Simulated assay, not measured.
Amino acid sequence: MLELMMLTGTVVYSITTNFPFSSWGEALFLTLQTIAICFLVMHYRGETVKGIAFLACYAMLLLALLSPLTPLAVVTLLQASNVPAVVVGKLLQAATNYHNGRTGQLSAITVFMLFGGSLARIFSSVQETGDPLMAGVFVVSSLCNGLIAAQVLFYWNAKPPHKQKKEQ
């Protein structure tokens, strides 16, 4: 749900501020994928009616956010809330890596692609939108992704701790 909120904030903010589709289109497709996953989780739990209600509520919320009745300040706040969400999510991952002394099953390729992608998004956001809030989200994301990428390099050859057998 947190990811859906972040993606929705980006889509609504981008539509409201008339940014070109190329600067936010991936957020729309990720939003659609996330909504589909949410529905399917409920459906396969045998809660299809609950899933349909979720879809209807989300659609009404989206319509309300995109309507002229919603002040720009609310939409901007929704977009700005991405910053603490990114920071908390990534720092929790970094803290877990530090506590474990390794990155576990974390995919190095994925981490480096996320880092490179967030760096590229800084440039594209500045070029396509000129919006400091959009670029700022990607600056913060790049810093956090860079921290996790550094941990992947630092803990590259770290082995999981050996569990000692208890003598009885």
Rank of each mutant, 00 (worst) to 15 (best):
Q93K: 13
G89Q: 09
V75P: 02
P84F: 05
V74M: 11
L32S: 09
L28Q: 01
V83Q: 01
Q33S: 12
V86F: 14
L78H: 04
S23G: 08
A56D: 03
A80D: 05
L63T: 05
V83H: 02
G51I: 08
V75N: 09
A80P: 03
S23R: 10
S23N: 06
V74E: 03
F54V: 03
E47H: 06
P20M: 04
V87C: 09
A73R: 15
S23I: 05
L91Y: 13
C57E: 09
C38Q: 14
A27R: 07
T76I: 12
L66Y: 04
L63W: 15
L40V: 14
S67F: 13
C57I: 14
Y58L: 05
A80C: 06
S22L: 13
L92T: 06
F54S: 02
L77T: 06
L65Y: 10
T70I: 02
A85E: 02
W24Q: 00
E26P: 01
I37C: 11
A53W: 10
I37R: 13
A56F: 08
V41A: 14
A53G: 03
L55M: 13
S81I: 08
L72K: 15
V87F: 12
L69Y: 15
V83L: 11
E26A: 12
G51A: 08
I35K: 08
S67A: 11
R45V: 04
H43R: 15
L77R: 04
A64T: 12
F54Q: 03
Y44N: 14
L77S: 07
S67N: 10
P68N: 15
I52S: 03
L32A: 15
F29V: 13
P71S: 13
P20R: 05
W24F: 04
F54C: 05
Y44M: 13
F39Q: 04
V74C: 11
A56C: 09
T34D: 03
H43W: 14
P68A: 12
I37L: 14
E47Y: 03
I35P: 00
C57H: 11
P71I: 11
A73T: 12
K90L: 15
A27F: 11
A64D: 09
G51Q: 05
A64L: 15
V83W: 07
T31S: 06
G89I: 07
F39W: 12
A85D: 00
L30S: 02
V86R: 09
S23T: 07
C38Y: 07
S81C: 11
I35S: 08
A85W: 04
Y44G: 05
L55K: 06
V49H: 06
G25Y: 01
P84Q: 03
L69W: 15
A64M: 14
S67G: 10
G25C: 06
V87E: 05
T34A: 08
L40A: 15
A85L: 10
G51Y: 02
T70P: 01
V86C: 04
F21R: 09
T31I: 01
V41S: 12
F29E: 04
M42N: 07
Q93P: 00
A36M: 14
L55P: 00
L91P: 00
A27M: 10
R45E: 11
F21M: 09
L63M: 15
N82M: 06
R45H: 11
L72G: 04
Q33C: 12
Q79D: 06
